[in-house]
Amino acid sequence: MAIRDLIPWKSQGQDIAPRQEERVDHPVMSLHRDINRLFDDMFRGFSMPSLPSIGRSLGWPRVELSENDKEIRVTAELPGMDEKDIEISLDDHQLVIRGEKKSETSDEERGYSERSYGRFERRIGLPSQIDEDKVEATFKNGVLTVTVPRTAEATEKRKAIPIKAR
């Protein structure tokens, strides 16, 4: 028996019909089918996390950047947090957003308590021509918005580069 005979090939969720020599109830093939059935039954009904959701949890909080000639706007989604839990600073041409989320639940009748803590820090690189004295931050409904104005000098130095077709 070849190794490729042990790989369960499926098409559209249906098993492909076994070859003539596999129709004989070989003990290894029988064991293989039983183990596959066991794993299929065990994981049926569980939604396994997909790769994009794992990536989102690694990059928490979710941040969106937008800019125009006058300013750079940074928007961060921070659901369930208060403004007192968030710290914003400028550090060597980087906007630093730090926070800590704490949650505690207890039920005396059932005799349990649950605590969860999570810290985050996001650093966003900024250009050198920003007006650090006029940076503003607002927080509403779990959304933090930081507006970083550009200097007049930065607006004048901006140059559009034409694209040539070949």
Rank of each mutant, 00 (worst) to 15 (best):
V148G: 05
I97A: 00
N141S: 07
Y112I: 02
E87A: 13
L58S: 13
L31V: 12
S106P: 02
I3Y: 13
L6P: 00
I124M: 02
D5T: 11
D15C: 02
S57D: 01
L38E: 13
K84P: 02
V146H: 14
P52D: 13
E132C: 05
T151Q: 00
T147M: 07
P49L: 05
E156I: 10
P149S: 09
H93Q: 08
H32W: 12
Q20S: 07
R4S: 14
G13A: 08
E71I: 06
F120T: 01
S106M: 15
S89W: 07
R62E: 13
T138C: 01
R122D: 01
M81G: 02
V24I: 09
F139E: 02
N68S: 02
E67K: 09
V143T: 07
K102F: 06
E153W: 03
G13N: 01
G80V: 05
T151G: 06
R4E: 14
R166P: 11
L31E: 03
I16A: 04
R158P: 02
G111P: 12
P127N: 00
S11W: 02
A137F: 06
L31C: 12
S113A: 08
Q14I: 14
I35Q: 15
K102W: 09
E71W: 13
T147K: 01
H26S: 08
K159S: 13
V63S: 01
H26N: 08
P127I: 05
R44W: 10
S11C: 06
P27H: 13
S47Y: 07
E156R: 08
G125K: 06
P61Y: 04
N36Q: 15
S11Q: 13
M81P: 09
K101V: 15
D133V: 06
P79A: 03
